[in-house]
Amino acid sequence: MHDHAVLRVVSKLLMPFIFLFALYVQFHGDFGPGGGFQAGVIFGAGMILYALIFGLKAARKVAPLHYLRAQLSLGVLLYAGTGIVGLVQGSNYLDYSVLAHDPAHGQEYGIMLIEMGVLLTVSSAMTLIFYLFAGQDH
């Protein structure tokens, strides 16, 4: 799809808004619909659009495979690690109340952290799966 001028220009225009919308869904998940999973999928879809229009090689320069692999594991580690902090502080696993002096604030921080973990894992998983499927033919 390298020589479709309309597709290239329109997707170039749309790309920043897609990523911005993903971040909005991520950080506005406390107030409106959305959260880590939805944001991750939208982020991944933005990367897939980039790879579809500008080619896998260009996309791999933006987000190399080894980077995505690290990000994939980092997300789950961040989630599980947030749970372990609760354990170390003498509470239950995945109890965020101990993350701050005020239990409600601790819950808010914990939710933010684990949603970030979900975002990291989901966005890299979606991009990675597409990379691998699309990179098979050559």
Binding site: P33, A80, I114
Partner: peptide, 22 residues
């Protein structure tokens, strides 16, 4: 009151049902 998060879906998913989401 317990989580400071107005969206109940998010607080249930991430806090009350944190194990499931993990």
């Amino acid at each position: 009151e317990a989580t400071d998060v107005p969206n109940v879906v998010t607080s249930v998913l991430a806090s009350y049902r944190g194990y499931d989401t993990l």
